[in-house]
Amino acid sequence: MYTTTNEEGILNNYATEPEIYYAAYPSDEQQSRYAFQGAVATLLVTALILFACGVS
């Protein structure tokens, strides 16, 4: 932790910054998994909406 003191004796604490890194582009397997998860989520939300409309 980095600490400074101003003229009046007030302390300022600064957190250490993490190292910056760039994300890697997802592989073909990850992309297909994301597409499958999106399809399942879409079906789930659609089923919930249709069920709610049917009950009401």
Rank of each mutant, 00 (worst) to 15 (best):
A41E: 10
Y2I: 14
A24I: 06
I20L: 12
P18R: 00
Y25P: 06
Y14Q: 13
Y14P: 08
V55I: 12
T3P: 05
I49A: 06
S27Q: 07
F51D: 00
G38D: 09
N12S: 14
Y34H: 01
A52I: 14
T16G: 10
Y25M: 04
I20D: 02
Y2D: 05
A52P: 12
A39P: 09
A15M: 04
V40K: 09
A47P: 10
T3I: 15
T4L: 15
L11I: 10
V45W: 00
Q37C: 11
L48P: 04
L48W: 03
L48A: 14
Y22I: 01
S32K: 14
G38K: 13
A41V: 05
A39Y: 14
Y34K: 15
T3N: 02
C53P: 08
E17M: 10
Y2C: 02
V55S: 02
T42I: 14
A39N: 11
Y14W: 04
Q37R: 07
L44W: 07
Y34D: 09
E19F: 00
G54S: 13
T4Y: 04
I10F: 02
I20F: 10
T4S: 06
Y2K: 04
F51K: 01
S32H: 08
N13L: 07
N6S: 06
S56R: 12
Y14H: 13
P18A: 02
E7P: 08
C53V: 13
A47H: 06
N12Y: 10
L11R: 06
T42M: 08
L43H: 11
T42D: 09
T4Q: 05
G54W: 04
T5M: 02
F36K: 11
G54H: 05
A47T: 07
V40A: 14
L43W: 05
Y2A: 00
E8D: 06
T3W: 02
Y22S: 15
Q31N: 14
S32G: 05
A35G: 04
T16H: 12
S56P: 11
N6L: 13
Y2N: 07
G54C: 08
E19W: 04
A24F: 07
A41G: 06
V45D: 05
P18Y: 03
A39D: 11
R33Q: 12
T46M: 08
I49G: 04
